[in-house]
Design a protein around this nucleic acid. Structure first.
Lengths: 118, 118
DNA sequence: TGCATACTGAACCATATGGTTCAGTGTTTA
DNA sequence: TAAACACTGAACCATATGGTTCAGTATGCA
């Protein structure tokens, strides 16, 4: 497991690769929530939910704070900026590749029609 | 591992959660490549590279085709549209949550200054 | 024909992941 | 003060991941 690149993106994309965790982000977008309420909603043990929240926290997507006996989870201020940036940059890569392909295809078509005037 | 949501996003975010695989996408953005050339560039065995390519392929991000004895890898036409859509939608969620917090804070400030006129 | 190339598949390994249970610890509240 | 609540941590389990090696198979070229 050589590391030539962003461990931050590793962590956040891995965090997003699980439906439960994407659901937690959805949920926290509506309102802050305790571990217990999230565990209820996603039908999971407290321990299981805590692990998911920790994954999101390590990725910087969620922030938690303990007040008394309840730990409240909130969306992290960092947001999804870095992830959006990577995705957008590479969306253009995909698009450019297909544009290049289109060029080749239209070149081929031009050549073809050049060979057969009208 | 209950599944209430998009296994497609599970696959693609998981595929993106690895620096080598993000690097492969980078590379394929510049030019199509064989398994061998990718394995060379990322200093990995053929078998190891093949596994990465398979992960990308299962996620629909890469398409491969075998001609003779060489398998050529290309970016998939599907692109990163679904992933971009999810991220953008949730970026707004994050933003909205902080806008709400700002409102609360400015309310608090207003109340405070109301109590202490000039 | 025969050797080099390019991939493929099985088997293996260490570590990570997604979950559980059980046994705590610290906080509220009746 | 005692019971209920909210979380925490350790231990365990099955499966997935990221890699390897080794032994093929199929293709291309001299």
């Amino acid at each position: 497991m050589v590391q030539y690149a962003s461990p931050a993106l590793d962590l956040s994309f891995a965090a997003l690769a699980d439906a439960t965790r994407r659901g937690i982000i959805d949920q926290l977008g509506r309102a802050d929530a305790s571990i217990t309420s999230l565990a209820d909603r996603f039908q999971m043990t407290l321990t299981g939910m805590k692990k998911h929240v920790q994954v999101l926290e390590r990725a910087g997507l969620v922030v938690t704070q303990k007040a008394g006996r309840v730990r409240t989870c909130t969306l992290g201020q960092r947001g999804l900026a870095a992830e959006a940036a990577w995705i957008e940059a590479h969306r253009q890569l995909f698009a450019a590749r297909f544009a290049a392909l289109d060029d080749i295809l239209s070149d081929m078509q031009r050549e073809e029609s050049d060979g057969q005037p009208e």
